[in-house]
């Protein structure tokens, strides 16, 4: 079963897997390229160009029309794109808006030929902040092949799948961290799926929580290391009462001792409360709380 709330990292993993499938052939068009559909299309568009029906070809921008699913038919059936979009929906990115459509026509399709589409998932980018909300850009290509196997037309299509920022199921998560220039690197990191630990650029000392000056060597030259995201549960609590805004009780909060040696606090998730144990191995997981906040959390490391 797919994790209902995949992290950004897991979404990228899924996307890479779908891209690795390469070009996936779909079902051939139900009808060959034909004059009635061309005439219907031209009339609806108000396109009076006589060249198409006069020379027995279809308007090139109709390429996709030939293989569109009918009402009630499932779109993208078998396409490598479907799983990625569904996972983005479950991630809360239920909004969708197309951003790019680029079509290349090798030649005009001819009356009587039947086109077959083939889809290739090419890229998932994000999470990114957009005017609509935080979301991911998913890009795929479709090539329409003639019966002789030669490509007739190609399309690159890109959509933004976003977490609706005004309407929809997400309300702002109320427990917000204060962030300033000393701590911003950490929160920028979790937004990108990285657990960043401050390191002194001079003496190398790691430090969490971070601060502006190295308490060991007095340096203000700071950098960070990206933690492996593995550690052990050093201590934990299970909060039952009173209710906490933005949270459902009970929930677990742990102090995690990282492989790198520093400790960090975060929720322990995907673990029954009675299975929590000091010393249990954990790995980091990144959970989106709303369109502006991702929190690093901890999940049991499978043996």
């Amino acid at each position: 079963m797919t994790d209902p709330e995949m992290t950004a990292e897991e979404l990228h993993e899924l996307a890479r897997g779908q891209a690795d499938l390469g070009e996936v052939r779909g079902a051939p068009a139900p009808d060959p390229v034909n004059a009635p559909m061309i005439r219907h299309w031209q009339q609806a568009m108000g396109d009076t160009n006589p060249v198409y029906l006069a020379t027995g070809v279809a308007p090139p921008a109709m390429a996709q029309v030939w293989t569109m699913p009918g009402p009630g038919e499932r779109p993208d059936d078998g396409s490598p794109v479907t799983d990625v979009l569904a996972a983005l929906d479950r991630h809360g990115c239920t909004g969708v808006v197309a951003t790019n459509c680029e079509q290349t026509y090798h030649r005009y399709a001819r009356l009587g030929e039947r086109l077959t589409p083939a889809t290739r998932f090419t890229d998932l980018a994000g999470p990114k902040r957009t005017a609509l909300g935080v979301g991911f850009f998913a890009t795929w290509t479709v090539t329409w092949y003639a019966e002789d196997g030669a490509p007739v037309a190609e399309m690159l299509f890109r959509v933004l799948k976003f977490r609706p920022s005004e309407t929809g199921p997400t309300t702002p998560y109320p427990l917000r961290p204060a962030v300033n220039q000393d701590t911003r690197f950490f929160w920028d990191g979790v937004e990108q799926g990285e657990l960043r630990i401050q390191a002194c650029a001079d003496c190398g000392a790691l430090r969490h929580p971070p601060g502006p000056m190295c308490p060991v060597c007095r340096s203000v030259a700071r950098t960070h290391t990206v933690a492996t995201g593995r550690g052990v549960l050093y201590s934990y609590v299970v909060h039952h009462h009173p209710p906490v805004p933005g949270r459902e009780t009970p929930f677990a909060v742990g102090v995690v001792e990282l492989q790198e040696g520093v400790r960090i606090v975060g929720n322990v998730v995907d673990c029954p409360i009675d299975k929590l144990e000091v010393g249990m191995p954990l790995r980091v997981t990144f959970r989106r709380m709303d369109d502006r906040l991702v929190l690093p959390m901890w999940t049991p490391e499978e043996a």
């Binding site: 006589p50 951003t99 790019n100 680029e102 079509q103 290349t104 026509y105 005009y108």
Partner: peptide
């Protein structure tokens, strides 16, 4: 006009 052959359309939506 009718003699033009369209090779590519790139649209940003």
């Amino acid at each position: 006009g009718p003699r033009a052959v369209i090779e590519r359309i790139d649209v940003r939506l």
